[in-house]
């Protein structure tokens, strides 16, 4: 396969996964915003969707304040914002367009249809259908893509690069989601017991489809340490950092065991396998997640060097 084709497949998968995760992030925040305002403050939680000063500044260049209408417009529909759902879908579509000769027709039709629909949407449309229904629609579309890929694509190189992009992006987003809530994770135990926190953790778990899993594994009401353990270290939780990196490692180890990217994946995975939640909280969750994101970015870059920049 051409290195350029591999690159497009990889990024297409990342953009699609990003669109779904942005919808999940927004859905969770939206659900929280429907609760009575507490000391956390509704607007504050919308602001937390932007996890760096850089992102906040970019937002404020376009919008006045961190209010729901502005944030949803910016993160869902604004094509000027490269991280928005619509821009992600557009970027994914451009990459599908560049590789449609190796993809199935169903996949192209599905992404093209989604782009045509979201391109025509306004915030008024989202309000009319209900924000929650909109986020569900994005998730359903993403599930449809994954289903089509799973059901129609040959298990070859194209499929591998698709999966690499999907799992690295998913890991990145789970880390991001936790960073957006890192303050709550770090709050003293004594303050964890109010009703808002109960909803907070429930919402976070639902954002990664892990609410039921949590109940099955831990029983009882969500606690921050257990939530973190589930989202970081649990190998059979599909959106945990560990399970995503397991997938990435499996692919690279099979495709090119001696490549630098396979070694980087090995190291990243080994750290997750050996990690324990107490140590994680002792050294600081935010620090850990930030380091993870740096390593994951390094891995992504190495994959591009090893496969996509053949000279």
């Amino acid at each position: 396969m051409l290195g350029r084709t591999a690159d497009s497949l990889y990024w297409m998968a990342r953009y699609l996964e990003r669109a779904e995760n942005t919808a999940r992030l927004l859905a969770g925040t939206y659900r929280m915003s429907l609760l009575p305002v507490d000391d956390v403050g509704t607007n504050h939680s919308w602001e937390n969707l932007f996890i760096s000063d850089l992102e906040k500044r970019a937002f404020l260049e376009n919008q006045q304040a961190f209010v729901p209408a502005a944030v949803i417009t910016y993160l869902a529909l604004d094509l000027e914002n490269p991280a928005s759902i619509a821009a992600s879908i557009r970027a994914a579509r451009e990459n599908v367009r560049a590789t449609r000769h190796v993809l199935t027709a169903e996949l192209w039709e599905s992404i093209n249809q989604t782009w045509l629909e979201i391109r025509a949407m306004t915030y008024a449309d989202i309000q009319e259908m209900g924000p929650y229904e909109f986020f569900e629609w994005v998730k359903e579309r993403s599930h449809l893509f994954l289903g089509i890929v799973h059901g129609t694509m040959r298990r070859g190189e194209a499929y591998d690069f698709w999966r690499l992009g999907t799992y690295l992006e998913r890991a990145e987003n789970t880390a991001r989601l936790m960073l957006a809530k890192s303050e709550s994770f770090q709050r003293p135990e004594s303050r964890q017991e109010n009703a808002i926190d109960f909803y907070q953790w429930g919402t976070l778990l639902r954002s990664v489809n892990a609410y039921k899993t949590y109940r099955e594994i831990y029983r009882g009401a969500p606690e921050p340490r257990k939530v973190a353990e589930l989202m970081v270290f649990t190998p059979d939780m599909p959106r945990s950092l560990r399970s995503c990196i397991d997938e990435v490692f499996e692919i690279l180890n099979r495709v090119r065991r001696d490549a630098p990217c396979a070694q980087k994946a090995d190291i990243l995975r080994a750290r997750l396998v050996a990690g324990r939640v107490d140590r994680l909280f002792r050294s600081g969750l935010e620090k850990y997640l930030t380091e993870f994101r740096t390593s994951a970015n390094g891995l992504s870059f190495q994959i591009q060097i090893d496969f996509m920049m053949v000279r």
Binding site: M1, L2, R4, A6, F307, V310
Partner: peptide, 8 residues
């Protein structure tokens, strides 16, 4: 030659 994931 073309540049592929497995080299030229």
């Amino acid at each position: 030659y073309m540049r592929t994931t497995e080299g030229p």
